[in-house]
């Protein structure tokens, strides 16, 4: 299994990689929205889950989410937003745009692990 971790923070990507390793999931990294779409076009048939930060340079996570969920090629891939944007309005906007799950920072490794398993086990939905 593979997940795409999209976050401009290398430290958060390292936390995701370490957690995915425990679950025996391989991680592909992207540091902004533009790189995320590049990686997605290259690996879309191998990626089982996308973890997506909201606030990033170049192209933000919400715009990446919309691009994924309006694409016939990518829309089946579950997307979990992993972000400090914890307001109800942001969560509703993300779910309306097609986000399958949502994790607000700060999170524990256990919370991240549980959410990843939940996403992969239930086809990604809440």
């Amino acid at each position: 299994m593979k997940l795409l971790a999209v976050d401009d923070s290398s430290v958060i990507r390292k936390v995701i990689i370490a957690t995915a390793d425990v679950l025996q999931i391989e991680t592909i990294e992207a540091c902004d929205g533009v790189e995320a779409l590049e990686k997605l076009s290259e690996y879309y048939d191998e990626i089982d889950l996308i973890l997506l930060d909201w606030n990033m340079p170049e192209m933000n996570g919400y715009d990446v989410l919309v691009a994924i969920k309006t694409s016939d090629i990518y829309k089946h891939i579950p997307v979990m937003m992993v972000t400090t944007e914890g307001q109800q309005s942001s969560i509703v906007a993300a779910v309306r745009a097609g986000a399958n799950n949502y994790l607000v920072k700060p999170f524990t490794v256990e919370e991240l692990e549980t959410k990843i398993v939940e996403c992969l086990g239930k086809g990604g939905n809440f």
Binding site: S9, V11, I12, E85, G86, Q87, V104, K105, P106
Partner: peptide, 20 residues
């Protein structure tokens, strides 16, 4: 780079949580 990223994340998380 790791220390800078860590501190930036703490700033992000603090401001995000306070906003809530």
């Amino acid at each position: 780079g790791d220390t800078e990223d860590t501190l930036c994340e703490f700033v992000n998380m603090t401001a995000g949580s306070a906003k809530l």
